[in-house]
Amino acid sequence: MKKKRAFLKWAGGKYGLVEDIQRHLPQANTLVEPFVGAGSVFLNTDYDDYLLADINPDLINLYNLLKTNPQPYIEEVRRLFTSEYNQKQAYLDVRRQFNESKDIQFRSIAFLYMNRFGFNGLCRYNKKGGFNVPFGSYKKPYFPEAELEFFSEKSQKATFICAGYKETFDRVRPESAVYCDPPYAPLSHTANFTTYAGNGFSLDDQAALADIAERTVAKQKVSVLISNHDTTLTRRLYHGAKLNVVKVKRTISRNGAGRNKVDELLALFQPPAE
């Protein structure tokens, strides 16, 4: 099957790691993803069904809209992919309306528009919950119609929930596999740590996720795969897992010379063989 791209730009998206993740994901009936993000793993695997979660309600509302009523949504959002809306003031107006609105349909349309027209496809909110990514100044942002349609078709096998990782793990049942793509641990103590959807993912969360993964494996007899930076900290946290190292290209500065390959871990927690 040809590799499928997500319709959203996404920091830390797993499109480039899909083949490695596929190799280490175990067979199961259901794939559970507590950090679904843009959904590259979902789009490029073939399970009977999926439980896909994220703490960002705008993301989950958009996915549910695409699942239940895709064509009106696609036609409406297409209207914003014009030169008229590819201007800073137009972008700022849509962003302001988004932050003032509670209408799910409008927020979902604006969310995709801002994802494609905003700077670097970032998804960032301030402490008051306002989307605050600046205008991106792209020549002609791509309208991902084919990607939207494929996502909608594939989503018929999925249940999307707005939930944290602890709540999502509570819903894991036997015959499942779990893939976790949390906000990554910092490469160093001085590294900036990204605030995601208004909530920081702390080092305590990193430890709690590893602990919940181990407990779920023991209780439900399922396998849990976690991706993260390869650091002393993550190796300690995942000491009970089978560790696989993969190299991933990361942009660490604005110029081309800043594109380096860094090591990432794929940590697989598995129940003991009977």
Rank of each mutant, 00 (worst) to 15 (best):
E100S: 06
F193I: 14
E100T: 09
H189N: 13
L187R: 05
G136W: 03
N132W: 02
K140C: 10
G118H: 14
S176M: 01
N120M: 06
F151T: 06
T190V: 15
N192R: 14
K154I: 02
R116G: 07
N192V: 12
K102F: 13
E145I: 08
Q97H: 08
G130K: 13
E149Y: 04
E175T: 13
R173A: 14
N99Q: 03
K166G: 07
P186I: 12
S101G: 07
L92Q: 15
S101Y: 11
R107Q: 02
C180N: 00
Q105M: 09
G136V: 05
G121I: 11
G130F: 12
F119V: 06
S155M: 08
L122D: 02
D93I: 09
K166E: 12
T194P: 02
A177K: 10
A197C: 10
R107D: 00
D103K: 12
R173I: 08
T159Y: 08
H189S: 15
F169Q: 00
R107M: 00
P134M: 06
P134G: 08
V172C: 01
Y196S: 07
E175Y: 14
P174C: 14
Q97Y: 06
L92R: 15
S108D: 07
S137P: 08
I161Y: 03
K127G: 11
G129Y: 11
K154W: 01
G136L: 05
N120R: 06
A146Y: 05
E167A: 13
G121P: 11
L187M: 13
R171H: 14
D181Q: 10
Y113E: 03
E100R: 13
K128R: 15
L112H: 01
V94E: 03
A177E: 02
F98T: 05
A191P: 07
C180S: 10
K157V: 07
F169T: 01
K154F: 01
R171S: 10
N132F: 00
F106N: 07
I104G: 11
P141T: 00
R96K: 15
Q97V: 11
P134T: 08
P182Q: 01
F160Y: 06
D170G: 06
Y184W: 05
